[in-house]
Design a protein around this nucleic acid. Structure first.
Lengths: 190, 190, 190, 190
DNA sequence: AATGAATGAGAATTCATTCAT
DNA sequence: AATGAATGAATTCTCATTCAT
């Protein structure tokens, strides 16, 4: 049998794409991505049908990464506030410690090269987060709004927080806590 | 390059660029923009030195538009909460009623073609918003955080709200109010 | 107004394509064609949507050229044999004196890049030849065959003849006559 | 390069190449040929040095196939007309019943990837046909022309006939006969 | 020997920008 | 000033060929 397709190489391409898309947007040349991945220009296309496929798969890979990060060590039986804090902290840390991933996701989120179907898959992946927030909002101030609204607020505030943590890493703990408290006041009762 | 004559034409190009960048990102061809503006391909370059200049000026124009919208009819002597609500409502309405502007700004915000200097100019333009929020936060829950943090939270929550208002225009009023209340709980004392 | 599109340039591209396709087939690079035409690579695409459009238009242009050549000076009221000889001589001379056109047509005739629709247009253009041959065959040996069969025989014999005339130009007259006589014996009565 | 083992595999590649070249011309990717042959991309190159070698060998294989077909059951001692008719019928049937082979040969005949030397080898293979036609022409109308001219006319008319037989298989017998009669009138005396 | 992943030199386009009209 | 044709560098993707498995 011939050389098998290498999962490592595929991951290298995705990692390189993360960096390049973060820095230059989805319109960055594929040649730059393959160079950053240390493979030949053509090799990129044995792992991804075309550039759009790469961008869409990158989007999903990043979403999956977030999901796995948020859910790792999820304290399913802890109190609501502790579970929410777990998700919050994980998400802020994820973004703050990996600015390229965060930025790449921001770029792909507004790119028309990511298909609607792919976006749906991505959101579905965060359904668990939404369920959690739903629990928070259920008897809280957001009782009259759809759960997606509270979830969107969580993500938006966390992303805002990420930016500050990134720029002032020494104050990470303070921002993370202040951000969470703001979120908690915003959506929970009392 | 000759001196441009018509302010109308310049505005038509900026308006066209707003639509095109909103739909396809900053990498959309200038030819598409000029076509949408109803001018010849070359004409675009008598009004803007090059594509980067156009994008940067578009970014500033959008920021200016936001600033003017927020500040029009600003009730300088009203209570803090009323002034904050004014800004909030204006901003949400601006984005919800002009999705292309909102989306174009989102695209430019993550584009590396908008220079750091241009971004600074843009933020400076929203200094007044920041000052207002500072007033809110001053004795509020955010007293220990930099005012920019509270201001960023305002913008982030307002932008989240815009999205919901856009998708469910019939519920505009409800979302606008729910969003503002969430913001107010998040940052003000009591 | 801007520089108008130049018919000369378009023709230069078609002429260059004739030479290049004749020599290297339809898979020859467009860059080679534009170079041969003395225009920039991109210019080719302001005159032709894409390579397929160029090849199809070239096919039609060659067919039109043949038609015009055959029909120029057509002795409509001469005897059948004289009219047939006119067409024969013109066609053989066309191919023998312009081997590139002949060869390019041969290449395009077997290329799957020339569409069925385009082929039909091309054949329609030679309807007059077919009508003539029909007259020849009408009471001749081919009375029981469709007129297209006799017409195809004319073209096939003429193309065979072209090849010999090309390789032995000194014997042009002899081959031309011998070919026509063969054709005439093949299809006419007596 | 290792010595190829299986004659079957080599033939499978040539057969696949026949189909693919017939349908898409000599510029069709080797990957398509190997896929059609049911072998790996690399395997093609253990049987043929490179793509040009494959195309040239395919050309010769097709010529050989024609020669063998024409000569199988050749009635060496029959009358001239019967021998000619034998060759004619075999050739027309060969092409009409195997359009891919016919079409592939037509493609290779105008391709610049088939070398002059290879073409000569191919013609030499049909020397016997030429000798036969020479006999026909010897005392016929073509007495003053080189025998190659009469032979070329045979092939051209037969190929024209093939096309009609292919499109109207029910009329095969009629076209085959009409074509031969036309040929015979064209070149024989009386 | 057979496989098919890897390679990088092209290939067809696209596109920002210039410039003749 | 306005126009849009002309330019050629840059871009995405293909493909013959090599080579690790």
């Amino acid at each position: 049998m011939a050389r098998p397709r290498s999962e490592d190489k595929r991951n290298a391409i995705l990692a390189a794409a993360t960096e390049v898309v973060a820095a230059h947007g989805p319109s960055a040349p594929t040649a730059r991505i393959s160079r950053a991945a240390g493979v030949a220009e053509g090799t990129l296309f044995t792992y991804f049908d075309d550039k759009d496929a790469l961008l869409n798969e990158l989007y999903l890979a990043l979403k999956r990464d977030v999901r796995d990060t948020l859910m790792a060590g999820y304290p399913a039986s802890a109190s609501l506030v502790d579970r929410a804090r777990h998700v919050w902290n994980r998400y802020v840390d994820w973004g703050a410690s990996q600015p390229a991933k965060h930025r790449a996701m921001a770029q792909l989120a507004v790119s028309d090269r990511v298909t609607a179907q792919c976006r749906e898959l991505g959101s579905a992946m965060l359904a668990e987060v939404e369920a959690l927030v739903h629990g928070v909002a259920w008897r809280g101030e957001m009782a009259d709004q759809p759960p997606a609204f509270a979830a969107a607020i969580l993500m938006a505030l966390a992303e805002t927080t990420m930016g500050f943590v990134q720029r002032e890493p020494d104050e990470a703990e303070r921002y993370r806590r202040a951000g969470f408290d703001a979120f908690w006041r915003a959506v929970s009762k009392e």
